[in-house]
Design a protein around this nucleic acid. Structure first.
Lengths: 213, 213
DNA sequence: GCGCCAATTATTCAAGCGTATAATAAGCTC
DNA sequence: GAGCTTATTATACGCTTGAATAATTGGCGC
C-alpha cells in the first residue's frame, strides 16, 4: 500500500489553508460539523496535521474567529479611505457595512457561531472585545472628522453617544439585511442606512443619502 | 441492583422540562455541548426519554429555538400593552427590548447559536422568518397608532421603512448592549435607544425620552 | 545527489455521540 | 387492589470524535 504523496507548504500558507477550511466547514455544517477530520479533508490534508499547526482544535477556532472579524472591518475601512472628503468617507463606511461582501449569509453564520461562544469561552470574549472597540473607534474618528468638516461643534461625549447609536444601527441593518437578503434590493438597504444615519445625526434629509461620489 | 424510582409527569411539563434543560446546556456548553446525555442529566431523566417525546435531537432543538424567540417577543409585547397611550406603548416596547430580561447574556448566546444554523437547516430558517415578520408587524402597528395619535400623516410605505430602521436599531442596541453589558448602565442604554428612535422618526428631542409614565 | 530535518501521513485509542430495543415500574380504571 | 397501559429506565450498538504516536516522505543545505 502506497502512502499519499503530498506537498510541503510554508507554515504561513498552510495555516491559512487550515483556517479557510475551518470556516468553510462551520459555514456549511455548523460548528458541530466542523470536526478535525472534516476540516482536514476540506484542506486536502490528514487530521494529524492540524495538531502540528495548532495546539488543539480550540486554538484553531480562535484563529478562525480573528480571521472572520478582521475580514469584516477591513472591507469597511478599505472602502472608507477611498473617499475624498470626511463626509464621503463616513458615507462609504456606512454603505460598505450593509453591502456585499460584508452582508453575506456565510459571514453571518460564522459570526453568529462565534458570538454564541463568547459567554462560554473567555478567549472568544477577548477577541470580540478587541474588535468591537476598534470598530467603535473607527466610527468615532470618522464622525469627529465629519463634524469638523461641517464646522459643526459636537462635544466628545456627544460624539461617543452618536457612535454607539450608529454602530447599533449599522449592526442591526447588517444583521437583518443579511438574514432577509431576499427581502431587500441591494441599494435599498444602503439607502435606508444612509437615511437613518442622517436622522440619527439630525442632518438635513439628503445630506448623506443624495447621489455623490 | 435496583432500578431508579421516578415520577410520571404530564406530557406538557415533561416537554417543558426537556426544552428548558436543552437551553441550559446550550447556554452553558455551547451547541456542541448540548448532547442528549448532558440534557437528560440536567433534566433529571435518562437519555432514552428524549426520544419518547421528540422524534430526534433536531426536533428538540427546533422546539427550543421557538421557545427562546417566543420568550423575547412576549416580554416586549407584554410591557407595551401596559401603556395607556400609543406613545407610551411605543416607548415601553422600545425600552423593554433593551432592558433585562430581554438583554441577557444567556439569551444572546442561545439566540446566536440558533442564528448560526439558519443558513444550514431550513427548519431554523422558517422559525426565524416567522418571528422576524411578527416582530416587524408588532412594531409597525405600534408606529401606525402612534402617528395617528399624533395626528401626523405618514404613508403606509413610509411607516414600513421606519419600522425596518427602528427594528434594526433596536436589534443592534440589544445586541451590543448585551454583549458589552458591563460598559453600559442599565438606563443609559434605554435612554440612548429612545433618543435614537426620536431622531429616526424626526421627532422633537424629548418627545419620547423625557420622563413620563 | 546525499543526508538530514521536520512536515505530513497512517494508525491507534479511549471517550462520547445519537439511536434502538427490551425490561420495568408508575399510576389510572374498574 | 388487580390489571392494563405507557412513561421511564437500563443497556447495548455502531459510529464519530479529538488526540497521541509511529512511520514515512519531501525538499533544502551542502
Amino acid at each position: 500500500m502506497n502512502r499519499r504523496t503530498y506537498h510541503r507548504a510554508s507554515e504561513a500558507e498552510r495555516r491559512e489553508d487550515l483556517i479557510a477550511a475551518t470556516l468553510d466547514c462551520i459555514a456549511e455544517f455548523g460548528i458541530q460539523g466542523a470536526t478535525v477530520r472534516q476540516i482536514a479533508m476540506r484542506a486536502g490534508v490528514t487530521g494529524g496535521l492540524i495538531r502540528h499547526y495548532f495546539a488543539g482544535k480550540d486554538q484553531m477556532l480562535h484563529a478562525a474567529y480573528r480571521k472572520v472579524m478582521a475580514g469584516m472591518t477591513e472591507a469597511a475601512i478599505t472602502a472608507a479611505i477611498e473617499g475624498e472628503t470626511a463626509r464621503s468617507r463616513l458615507r462609504r463606511f456606512i454603505v460598505a457595512n450593509v453591502t456585499p461582501p460584508v452582508t453575506d449569509p456565510r459571514t453571518l453564520s460564522l459570526w453568529a457561531a462565534f458570538i454564541s461562544h463568547i459567554q462560554i469561552d473567555p478567549s472568544f470574549a477577548a477577541i470580540h472585545r478587541e474588535n468591537y472597540l476598534s470598530f467603535l473607534e473607527a466610527l468615532e474618528t470618522l464622525l469627529t472628522a465629519f463634524f469638523a468638516e461641517e464646522k459643526r461643534v459636537v462635544s466628545r461625549a456627544q460624539c461617543h453617544t452618536y457612535a454607539i447609536g450608529l454602530n447599533a444601527l449599522v449592526d442591526g441593518l447588517w444583521l437583518e439585511g443579511t438574514l432577509a437578503a431576499d427581502t431587500f434590493a441591494e441599494h435599498e438597504l444602503a439607502e435606508n442606512a444612509l437615511i437613518s444615519v442622517e436622522a440619527l445625526l439630525r442632518l438635513q434629509p439628503g445630506e448623506l443619502s443624495a447621489e455623490q461620489r
